[in-house]
Design a protein around this nucleic acid. Structure first.
Lengths: 224, 224
DNA sequence: CTGCATCCGCTTCGATACTG
DNA sequence: CAGTATCGAAGCGGATGCAG
């Protein structure tokens, strides 16, 4: 794949030359939540081989999408981070999440789910039209410290914000449960009953939680 | 590639399973301008092999992104068209065009350019903030009938519209020249002088043409 | 002519083993 | 921890064949 080129004068073709090989866009997605080490990426991408990961990172670095940073002495290691050009992919990635979300219905229960994917998932599925004027602090369970964000509804749409602040209610839940809640496949009460969530604060705000998002699941797999 | 799956519960991974193989997204891009026959696609995708094109189309059809339509008797042929699910990719594709456009600076002059790519390109590069209150009818030269669209500036951004209507000026040009004009790499007068364009109407509107678009070219290839 | 299927030589992928 | 080396398997591009 070394330096494959489509013989096309087209921005989509240029983007595909950089991104449309196996694993590549998933590496970029993982780096959107912050810099990662080689082995962190390997863990987050079950099935990738070391050689392919090394090759993808080298190419993304060469093309200016990713940069390598050496950490200061105590941590004798280096991390990979998105460059400005890489971060500019955010709108495209958000739209791809919105599109790909319709295929999440056919859930494959053994699939891996990184907690760090949840914030971008919620941001992508945030309702763009008027949504309930509620604010919910969402705490994504990670096994260690939860990821904290706030989901804010309003007349101009739902926003997802990473800074702390006041909220009508707090919802702490497993990554899977959060996605199901946002998709409206589950209610907060059901998630609590199943031990996948803890809630505090205004029950009405939590009842409106799925109203803060929009999701268009595919009816079902067309040909199984 | 037959039915490769990432073991990830993530919309980006689901989308990549469908789209992130070589040629696949370019097929979708070409179908956005309307249904095409197998051989039309082959012509628009120089370098693709017949077997890969057939396989990609079969997969896209199976996954519900593309559908095959049999044309009525006189034309004993069939065409491929996007389904509703396929058309839902438009926002993602637009954002990918915006991102990929920054790599168009390193122009490879022998690259193929389909006139049908131009409308989506202009739509993607349309300025999103306030733009000059001008309307320009754009006629993309194709070798046969030109593709006609209108570019409309205004305080809420530039819109690209496919219906005919009044315009301050008319700009008929080669596909390459149109992209260069939108990118601000060329002025209308220069394009005319080079025989790549014809203009009519308000010269001021044409002078503002590149102001209707925004493009952020990469400074240069980071490592050649 | 259109829409593939088949075969061949080359590239890429995934899994494992190994090294600084 | 962060890769490189290696090898069988799968994918790809190009040519050819062939049915409708």
């Amino acid at each position: 794949m070394v330096d494959f080129r489509y013989a096309q004068l087209c921005p989509v073709a240029r983007a595909c030359e950089l991104l449309a090989s196996r694993w590549t866009l998933l590496i970029v997605r993982d780096l959107f939540a912050g810099p990662l080490r080689f082995s962190d990426l390997q863990r987050a991408l079950p099935g990738i081989s070391t050689s392919v990961l090394a090759e993808r990172l080298a190419h993304l670095e060469q093309r200016g999408v990713v940069e390598r940073r050496e950490l200061p002495p105590p941590a004798a290691s280096s991390v990979y981070a998105l460059t400005e050009t890489g971060r500019a992919l955010r709108p495209a990635l958000i739209e791809l999440v919105r599109w790909g979300a319709r295929f999440m219905g056919a859930s494959r229960p053994d699939d891996h789910l990184e907690p760090r994917w949840v914030p971008m998932g919620l941001e992508a599925m945030a309702r763009r039209g008027p949504s309930p004027a509620r604010s919910v602090e969402v705490r994504v369970r990670t096994g260690h410290e939860p990821l904290v964000l706030r989901v804010l509804g309003g007349p101009t749409g739902t926003r997802v914000c990473h800074e702390p602040g006041p909220a009508d209610a707090v919802l702490e839940a497993e990554p899977r449960a959060l996605l199901a809640l946002a998709a409206g496949l589950l209610t907060a009460d059901q998630a609590v009953a199943a031990g996948q969530a803890l809630i505090q604060g205004d029950p009405a705000a939590l009842g409106d939680f799925s109203g803060l998002f929009e999701m268009n699941l595919q009816p079902s797999d067309p040909t199984p």
